[in-house]
Design a binder for these strands. Structure first.
Lengths: 176, 176
DNA sequence: ACGGTACCAGACAGATCTGTCTACTGTAAG
DNA sequence: CTTACAGTAGACAGATCTGTCTGGTACCGT
């Protein structure tokens, strides 16, 4: 991975997450990453290409972060929930990057939406498998709930609603 | 309310909700509402003004719709949840207009975000008051949860995830 | 009859956004 | 040494977006 490419991607990740995708132009990314315009279009064939790189990279990051959480059963879910609760009330939290992106891309067939769908499927499966590993009944339905509560925590945290975040965590823990 | 103004607002409501705020330009609204550009700027001093009108009108609509739900206690919450569950898996549902708008306006001090905050506060209070009217304990905490689950249902429904919506409704009903 | 107001049609300015292009520099491999 | 490539700087085209302005029509209350 070349230095310029990662500088572009890091800058895009920071700006897209903090300010939104449509509000941040490629000129802004180029300026803050201190690369030439030609260099940008050498590494990414379009802005959409950069957006997809941003989301898929984030997806991979989450896989490493959450998949690598301690334990394999409900203790893993608890660890993930603890982490989620912590970051979602922390400074700089602006919601889930996938949900925010989905809100900006209304067409469900858009490639961006496919990444979002993939992420949510993966998360649901992670929950379901963890529940099954601890022999919990109704793993599928509980996984659906844990996904929905995760969405709610991300939204509430992004809006600065700490009370709702706590209520969500309590409910999720009670369900596992 | 003049005919042109309501035509503009109706068109904006339809387009902003279905396609997002930043992706829809005023030219598009003007064309589909079949009004002159001068007429648009006669009624709304800027695009932001139109966006705020869209959201505050939606807020008022929700107040009438949900506040007018049958009953005053938990039966009102149940009626609201039933309605939410129904529309959120229906065609044309694209999530909560307030949450979608918040995702597009990253600055928490932006007027758009204030409307979103107002809506969520109102919804939480409606839940809390309904719980108290039925003498349910821990009304505040349960209201937080109902708000978070509402967020989750709106998100999941907007992404076409019917399973998660159902899981959310079950959990909310169990909590009241 | 008249003045105000709501409306239509569309040109226009100015900013901004994406993407292309030219021209040049440094560097590492063959 | 030279060829290929990653990089810099910045002009440029073409589209799009917001907001203003001109000019004209129709209705409504006084």
């Amino acid at each position: 991975m070349s230095s310029a490419r990662s500088r572009i991607l890091d800058t895009a990740t920071r700006l897209f997450y903090a300010e939104g995708i449509h509000t941040v132009g490629v000129d802004r990314v180029i300026a803050e990453a201190t690369v030439a315009k030609a260099t940008f279009y050498h590494h990414f064939k379009s802005k959409e290409d950069l957006v997809l790189a941003y989301l898929t990279t984030e997806y991979e990051r989450q896989k490493v972060l959450l998949g690598g959480a301690p334990g394999t059963g409900v203790e893993r879910i608890e660890a993930i929930l603890a982490k989620l609760a912590e970051v979602s009330v922390g400074p700089g939290f602006r919601g889930c990057p996938f949900l925010n992106a989905a809100a900006e891309y209304a067409d469900p067939d858009h490639p961006v939406r496919h990444v979002v769908d993939d992420y949510r499927s993966w998360y649901r499966d992670l929950m379901r498998d963890s529940l099954k590993a601890s022999d919990r009944p109704n793993a599928d339905q509980k996984a659906d709930l844990l996904l929905l509560v995760r969405d709610g925590i991300a939204v509430a945290g992004g809006l600065g609603d700490k009370d709702a975040v706590q209520a969500g965590v309590r409910t999720a823990l009670a369900a596992v």
